[in-house]
């Protein structure tokens, strides 16, 4: 059974359809990269996976739990799915340490000491232990995003969702974030990653999903995608972003 399964998911904003019959899945330990032109619905799709975006049709099942079911305890489900946002979304009024411990203490019920120990271990892992007493605003974008990844990992997630994690970063900071993600992928983390970083996809993705106009146009292995993509839309997209 896949860790994340989407079956015929559709979503409308009024009469505008943002997701059109999307079906795909992410197996345990699998890394799936979702790409596509802006406005293609990829961010909406990944936010639907942990219930941040409601959808009207279809079904999403994460670790055996249906996300769209009104009876589902969403906070409980979300606690075990890590999410990293385009704009980091660290809590600016809290120190880095508190950013890392808040969820652990309030949601998982860990003690403050336990949460701090865990948080510091992860902060060290992303190379930012020395920043633990600072506030998010004092860190660079790349550093903030690494803290955000550490924050998500502190909840011991069974899967990680990345929503364009490097799009808001200056070019020189992209690699420090990608390195952390690559390492995570190689350790066997289940990951769904919305990104335009095709280098990352080539390096660690198992599958690539290509979206356009709310539809999943391609859903194939990495080698197929970069070798012989069938759809013209995907080819056009690739030729555009691989040039620079």
């Amino acid at each position: 059974m896949p860790m994340i399964e989407l079956r015929n998911v559709s979503k409308w904003y009024g009469s505008f359809q943002v997701l059109d019959d999307c079906t795909t899945s992410v197996g345990k330990g699998e890394v799936v990269v979702v790409c596509g032109p802006s406005g293609s619905g990829k961010s909406t799709l990944i936010k639907a996976v942990n219930g941040l975006e409601p959808f009207q049709k279809g079904e999403i099942v994460v670790n055996g739990v249906s996300v769209g079911d009104p009876k589902t305890d969403l906070p409980k489900l979300r606690a075990h799915i890590g999410m990293v946002f385009q704009n980091f979304e660290l809590f600016p009024h809290m120190s880095i340490t508190r950013n890392l411990t808040l969820g652990q203490v309030k949601v998982l019920g860990r003690s403050q000491e336990e949460a701090e120990a865990k948080g510091m271990k992860l902060l060290d892992r992303v190379g930012l232990l020395s920043q633990k007493d600072k506030f998010p605003g004092q860190l660079s974008g790349g550093q903030q995003q690494r803290v955000a990844i550490a924050r998500a990992l502190s909840m011991d997630p069974i899967a990680m969702l990345f929503d364009e994690p490097t799009s808001a970063l200056d070019p020189e900071m992209i690699n420090e974030v990608l390195d952390v993600m690559v390492e995570l992928a190689r350790e066997g983390m289940t990951m769904m990653v919305v990104t335009h970083e095709m280098g990352f996809a080539r390096k660690v993705a198992h599958r690539v999903v290509f979206m356009d106009h709310g539809q999943i146009v391609e859903d194939c292995t990495k080698d197929e995608f970069f070798g012989s993509v069938r759809s013209e839309r995907a080819q056009t997209f690739l030729s555009k972003i691989l040039h620079h």
Partner: peptide
């Protein structure tokens, strides 16, 4: 910004926790 409560929810905080710890203090 809407991303703040979204990040709080993504951590598994419920509505009151997200309001009380993340949105209202800011």
């Amino acid at each position: 910004p809407r991303g703040q409560p979204a990040a709080a929810y993504a951590l598994g905080l419920n509505y009151w926790q997200s309001m009380g710890h993340v949105v209202l203090p800011q």
